[in-house]
């Protein structure tokens, strides 16, 4: 467990919670990323500006971390050590499934996880348990059955 970072991870979690508090208290919206995205994609949705601004802020926050000296050198987007074309295919497939699944299931790690669990929603609890389980199973299959690193 040498990669374990309990303190920064807990502090980061508190900040994500604070972000959700600000959005709900300030303008009555849940800080679920797939939910905010979904409204951007809906035809005729009249409330795009706040959603776009949230995304701009999200990217600016991550950029700010690096500019203020935060360490992003450990970021590794190829954890299974896949080779060129295989990595591209897996990234494309992963992105499609993440997009499709979060819209179909009405939420992701933030919407069901952080916000839904905070509202004691049974739907969110079941959804979170489900995506954690299939994600864990997928990693085990890729790593130990199909032989990724």
């Amino acid at each position: 467990m040498e990669n374990f970072t309990p303190i920064p991870s807990f502090i980061g979690g508190l900040l994500i919670g604070l972000s959700a508090v600000i959005l709900l208290l300030g303008q009555g919206r849940l800080a679920g990323i797939s939910g905010i995205l979904g409204g951007l994609l809906s035809a005729g949705s009249g409330d795009r500006p706040w959603r776009l601004l949230f995304f701009i802020g999200l990217i600016a926050g991550a950029a700010g971390y690096a500019m203020l000296g935060g360490d992003i050198s450990t970021v590794d987007i190829n954890p299974f050590r896949l080779s060129g074309n295989t990595q591209m295919t897996v990234l494309l497939l992963g992105g499609l499934l993440v997009g499709f699944g979060t819209q179909m299931g009405s939420g992701c790690t933030s919407g069901h996880g952080i916000c839904g669990l905070g509202r004691f929603s049974v739907r969110s609890l079941v959804a979170t348990g489900t995506f954690m389980a299939t994600a864990g199973l997928t990693v085990v299959l890729v790593r130990y059955v199909f032989g990724g690193a």
Binding site: I33, G94, L97, V98, G101, G105, C108, S110, A127
Partner: peptide
């Protein structure tokens, strides 16, 4: 829909290590 969607999302998350928030950020 809830269960199927969550299950599909989890597979994509496990393949990539990316959920929507970190992907956009």
């Amino acid at each position: 829909r809830l269960l199927g969607g969550a299950a599909i999302f989890g597979i994509g998350w496990g393949l990539s290590g990316l959920c929507p928030g970190p992907a956009f950020a």
